[in-house]
Design a protein around this nucleic acid. Structure first.
Lengths: 275, 275
DNA sequence: GTCATTTTGGAATTTTTATTCCATTCTTGC
DNA sequence: GCAAGAATGGAATAAAAATTCCAAAATGAC
């Protein structure tokens, strides 16, 4: 760190992150500690003091000050300003509103809604944190090559499989929704070259497991969306995607499952149309 | 405000809100301004200074200090501490993770997922902010008195109506899902004493509108879940719930719609079982 | 191993921010 | 309309935080 032509401070959190990523490797020990701690806890910058962050990174406050300057800020305060302004963008009083909703008499419809909104949000955040990018890419790979995509998910998972059927149809991708109507199992509709996307959560639906087993035995690739890597569905799957859905009461919000499913569908759509 | 036996400071954001609500009406002008501004922007407390908040409430800083003390804190700093500590976003590094996801090459499945997760979150937050509690209560009222609840929603709304059918079935509430199979419209399955819950978004499904119109003409109450109060579905409805769903690309996340729908179902379930 | 250069830790300083205090202005009961 | 009490605004003070600076330690080139 000899010279460091004072460049303009990052103007957005994204720009900040980019510069941070670019710089981290070039920094000496203490400053790298700062960079890593900041990268890990960037959401605390807005509500912490220099001393607190420095303690967290296990460096003296002056090291953290130097770090801020290297990032292009005049000092810590300028950096903090960026994060304070970005704090809760778009929906400033969401948390207030949510608190009011949840408080509006337990059991009241509004309070219930508050709980489900929160459950959905937690599920989505948790999904973003835990998603296995490789498994997702593998799943896209499998489905983009399939002649017809068979969709199987019953009971609570039926909402997801039916939405996928809608999305795939819209993108003109051949898909078949196995809906269990009349107890026809339609297993013979699955032909060589097809793939199965199966969705089930505990307690696992026997019909879904059976269809996945059948597909597997006949050599068709199976993509699983389920709740755990050790789920019985995963045993039959070539790629397994897990969703950490938060329940409220007896029902789950499905937000995370649907987000994952629709992402998968759109990624497959993009892959097929560019092929 | 003569004497104010110094009581212990609130230990949680909920306790804070309760005390705030209880106190607001007893306060003189300036202090009430503080209370109202704080109630409205409690999420900014963690990242603001006394001067900033005071300016926002249009009072001098000393008034705000007095307000903090009346709330039971030793001063502003102690109050701010409560909010800074409470701000542990459910999953500490969610925002970092999300930023990484979205950055992972546009068009990649992971990047798509990042976008859908964000769209879902925004939808949920927006729903919490905009939900019409009275309309929600009215909808529960209508549905809790119905003999059979008829569910109608096609295309993208079918995921929602089918999930509702699942939830109502689980709660042993008589419900019938109109699925459009074989183009049977099943309108005559709707009997006096029943109610219809219809769901459609632009471009509105003709079948759904037709069924709602029919129910209306026969004097059955109709609850609508749609995207705008001016939607054609709302014209046939006794209660209209609107959902501000955020799209990403051609598809919506459905998170908010499902959260609203399931809340409605559970509230109806609770109302019926306690009746 | 020595010297030049970079990096570091902590004490000293400056700036910002919170907090107190009190003179003045409003209210309200009579 | 007058007094007594409450509420208010702003200047003065105290506290906390950010920032700078420099001597000491570490590193690395020769």
């Amino acid at each position: 760190m000899t010279d460091m032509a004072t460049l303009a401070p990052p103007e957005s959190v994204e720009a900040f992150r980019e510069r941070l990523a670019a710089l981290t490797d070039t920094l000496p020990k203490r400053l790298k500690q700062c960079a890593e701690h900041i990268a890990q806890h960037s959401d605390r910058i807005a509500v912490s003091t220099v001393a607190e962050l420095a303690a967290g990174a296990d460096v003296p406050p002056s090291a953290l000050m130097r770090f801020c300057q290297i990032m292009g800020f005049s000092g810590f305060s300028e950096m903090q300003k960026l994060f304070r302004e970005a704090y809760m963008p778009g929906f400033p009083d969401y948390s207030t509103r949510l608190a009011n909703l949840r408080q509006s008499g337990s059991g009241s419809p509004a309070a219930l809604l508050g709980e489900f909104v929160e459950a959905g949000r937690l599920s989505l955040e948790s999904l973003a944190k835990s998603v296995d990018e490789e498994a997702l890419a593998a799943a896209v790979d499998i489905l983009k090559g399939a002649d017809t995509i068979h969709l199987m998910g019953l009971r609570r998972a039926f909402a997801v499989s039916s939405y996928l059927a809608y999305a795939l149809e819209k993108m003109e991708i051949p898909a078949m929704l196995h809906d269990g109507i009349g107890k026809f199992d339609h297993r013979h509709a699955m032909r060589a070259g097809d793939a199965l996307l199966a969705i089930t959560f505990a307690p696992y639906s026997e019909e879904t497991l059976a269809l996945a087993r059948d597909a597997r035995q006949r050599g068709l690739p199976v993509v699983a969306i389920t709740d755990r890597l050790t789920s019985p569905l995963a045993r039959h799957a070539s790629a397994t995607l897990t969703v950490p859905e938060v329940d409220f009461g007896a029902f789950r919000s499905l937000s995370a499952t649907i987000a994952l499913a629709i992402s998968l569908a759109v990624a497959v759509g993009a892959a097929r149309s560019s092929a």
